[in-house]
Computed example of a mutant assay.
Amino acid sequence: MTTIFRTDFLAGPMNAHQLSTDPTPHLSEVLQFAPSIRSSQTCRETIRVMFSYPDSPCIVVCDKKEQPIGLVMCERFYLRVCSRIGRDSFYNDPISKLMSQHFLTADINDSFAKIAAAANNRPPGMRNDCVILTNNGRFTGIIQASDLNRML
């Protein structure tokens, strides 16, 4: 059985700064939902989650406290697991074997410019990975790299 942990994300302005005419966007304007799973779930279960949320570019792996511990970019994961060799060897393995442990997280209250700069300073192979947003350390949502670049 696959368990999907959905978290609520913020909608609308949070403080007076965001109500001003400041052209800098707030994270809530680009925040998106992404499903989250536990690290003990199998690759087969992760594929089911991925197909249940076809519009999500990633799946966030969280611990019991809903703190992010890994990132699964769906396209990369699908290509790896669905290769001829991947199906046999990875389906029953926990997702912790294939998740990326190198990912960018930011707090929902961090500045947009700070997050965009950090995202653009990642190694080339990771620049298109989603940024995981947290609120007090707990998974809140994601921002796609394309949205960060578009809003600059």
Results as ranks from 00 to 15, higher is better:
V72G: 06
K97H: 13
V81L: 14
D55N: 06
I59P: 08
P57K: 00
G86C: 08
M99A: 05
N92T: 13
P25D: 05
P25F: 09
T46K: 00
L19I: 06
R80Y: 08
C82Y: 15
P94K: 01
S111I: 04
M14E: 08
T21K: 07
C82N: 15
F33I: 05
I37R: 14
T24P: 00
E29K: 10
M99R: 04
L79M: 10
D110P: 03
F33K: 02
S28R: 01
E45M: 10
A106H: 01
A118W: 12
Q41K: 11
S96H: 02
V81K: 01
F51S: 13
V72F: 13
A34E: 02
M73G: 04
N121R: 15
P57G: 06
R84S: 10
I85N: 00
F33S: 02
S36A: 12
E29S: 14
A118Y: 12
V61F: 05
H17F: 06
F90S: 13
I108H: 05
N109F: 14
P35V: 03
C74F: 00
S56A: 12
R80S: 11
I108M: 08
N92G: 14
Q32Y: 09
C62N: 05
A106S: 06
C82G: 08
V61C: 03
I95R: 02
L19G: 06
F112Q: 05
A116D: 06
D22A: 03
G70Y: 10
P35N: 10
E75G: 14
S52P: 01
G86Q: 06
L98I: 05
E45R: 10
P68D: 11
S83Y: 03
M14Q: 10
T24W: 11
I59A: 08
C82I: 09
I85P: 00
S20K: 07
S100K: 15
S100Y: 12
K97S: 12
S52Y: 08
L71A: 13
R44W: 13
T105P: 04
I47V: 15
S96C: 11
A118T: 07
C82Q: 14
V61R: 04
S28V: 07
R84A: 10
L27D: 03
D63G: 09
N120S: 15
M73T: 15
S96R: 03
A113N: 04
Q32R: 14
C74S: 10
Q18D: 11
L31E: 11
A106G: 07
L27K: 02
H102I: 04
K64P: 00
Q101L: 01
P54E: 02
D88Q: 13
